[in-house]
Design a protein around this nucleic acid. Structure first.
Lengths: 344, 344
DNA sequence: GTGAAAGCGCTAACAC
DNA sequence: GTGTTAGCGCTTTCAC
């Protein structure tokens, strides 16, 4: 049994209230008392119970963070951003891994409410209709990451997907590419925004640029899509993928076909997960500010808690990261000989 | 303000104690009362406060999980294993990201004690002396992952590093390799165990097998070590790395030198992080049961909480995962022509 | 500058 | 089967 405030008070010969004052650094404590109380605390190895404090103060200093899947390389960085910021504010994070299961996500919402968390952050890929209704009238400060509720009642943090798609395509067009292929991810969500950006860049390009759009969600599907393309198109062409994992699948497929990434075909991903830097050649991609999303989410919660009325979407800028997977489009009749792919 | 148990009791025309009984599913409640109470709960959207309950019951149903760095691809899987299991047991996880900072790690221990967590899991790379003293006399159930206190007072979960090193080397020797190189990781910790395993396999090998040991912690240092080796040794030879990240650094360096991974030089990693599967060729590696470590940690905590006296080390088995980065050692004078590396 | 008293929301022991 | 009572450990008036 850990020592209680009463134990400390008794040992120091004061009342519990005085111990509280010491705990809070109140100036209305005589130096003498202060010292005695501190000594008593040290003696008893006293640690105030935040459980009791939470009950009394009606706030727990705890935030719930529901994540689609911690194992998805996209999320740990968001978790870091949130945890880091929470820590600075004196809060803790209860981590909930929804494991891609919407039911479980909802169960967590309940659990977190019972735990009386001061706010909840939901970093989830796709929201179901059921979520929408539940969240729209939610009895606690709430922020969404990478998802938004139609009516904008709940503050949401998003990446500028449209700008990202545009930057990816512009980069390729700037390298001289005239044949673009976009491989889509999951039908829902931001897919269309990224594609819309690509479309916009293609439309605005000087000269004639073609764009073909394929489905290919996931690592292997991305590879399959690439094979399909390779059977029809002749290099130089360029592929934008909805995310990095798809792009890596594309790169492997091209490699197997003896098509050189960068020299023959350029590839651009989206997200900038760690993998992008370690793959060979390095993957050119659109970086989302994942850490910043986590950070901002916690900051918004803390402002909501303070009574501010916040709603609407926060759109974070993205950034083109050029690595080895993109290169200038060689003249129309580019050699396609299988040989060493350029590194990074 | 959320509804309280008294609100429910009043609305249902019963005492709070009866509401508690309903909450706990006690059989000593008349069907009639049961129904009225349930109706009142629904009406008020009542959620029992686990804060109040925790104070009363002197247990929070919360576990602290201190992790060196969530962003390190090794940890998310441990987190998943812990969170998953905690959930099954009705517990929640407070995630603490130490960000490689030992001071911060210690600060978290204090914070978690104040929060009166039911137990703490520390998944940390290196323990300092200061940790040791603190943890050896820790006032809460405690489990370590991938670290152990000399005297074994605190239960620790480890991978069988020695067996892993042995399996890696045996795999290579079985492929006909006679020149082995081991690239070490951080000096402390399990480094030596893995190396010891490699040594054991080399010693037990039929015929003459040489082993060279190099430092090379981290992605780039691993690459540097590989370049050093390549300048001296002629293929076929084989490299075991202390972990996957080093191994990937090695693979890139070899690629740059025009040395083919698998055909000319085999490479084996350790850990089996996601990266290992996505790199090209796929990295042969020793898989640690990361999920199982997280799971076991939570299970041990729950048994400690139940009063069992548990100490000593739990050593989990590892598993050789063969991918494309290892292949048979070609005859002594193997061609070293730069050409396409075999895929996966 | 300090103490007494009340109460946060729940549950456990005991009564009936 | 149900109610009464006390108390978990803290903080917050309010008094002095």
């Amino acid at each position: 049994m850990p020592a209680t405030i009463t134990d400390v008070a008794t040992l120091a010969g004061v009342s519990p209230a005085t111990v509280t004052r010491v705990l809070q650094g109140s100036p209305r404590v005589s130096p003498d008392t202060l010292e005695r109380v501190k000594a008593a605390m040290a003696e008893l190895d006293y640690r105030p119970s935040s459980v009791a404090r939470s009950l009394r103060q009606q706030r727990t200093g705890t935030l719930g963070l529901i994540v689609t899947d911690v194992n998805n390389p996209f999320y740990p960085e968001i978790v870091r951003g949130a945890e880091d910021t929470a820590r600075e504010l004196g809060d803790s994070i209860i981590l909930c891994n929804a494991a891609e299961d919407p039911e479980r996500e909802i169960a967590y919402l309940d659990l977190l409410l019972e735990r009386r968390v001061d706010g909840i952050i939901v970093a989830a890929g796709g929201l179901t209709k059921r979520h929408e209704d539940l969240l729209a009238a939610f009895p606690a400060p709430l922020v969404l990451i990478n998802a938004s509720l139609g009516r904008g009642l709940v503050p949401a943090i998003l990446s500028d997907d449209e700008a990202g798609g545009r930057a990816a395509a512009q980069h390729l067009i700037g390298l001289g590419h005239r044949q673009l292929v976009h491989i889509c991810g999951p039908a829902s969500g931001s897919t269309s925004e990224r594609l819309a950006g690509v479309r916009a860049a293609v439309a605005a390009a000087p000269g004639e640029v073609t764009l073909e759009v394929l489905e290919g969600d996931g690592y292997s599907a991305g590879g399959a899509a690439a094979r399909q393309v390779a059977a029809r198109l002749r290099p130089p062409y360029a592929i934008t993928a909805h995310n990095d994992l798809i792009a890596v699948g594309v790169m492997h497929a091209l490699f197997d076909l003896g098509i050189r990434v960068s020299q023959d075909v350029s590839v651009v991903g989206f997200d900038d997960i760690a993998l992008a830097a370690y793959v060979n050649p390095g993957l050119t991609t659109i970086a989302q500010d994942k850490f910043g999303m986590g950070r901002l989410a916690v900051e918004i919660i803390s402002r909501l808690r303070a009574g501010e009325a916040i709603r609407g979407n926060y759109v974070l800028p993205v950034r083109l990261v050029v690595r080895g997977s993109t290169g200038p489009a060689a003249g129309a009749g580019a050699r396609q000989t299988a040989a060493l792919a350029r590194r990074r």
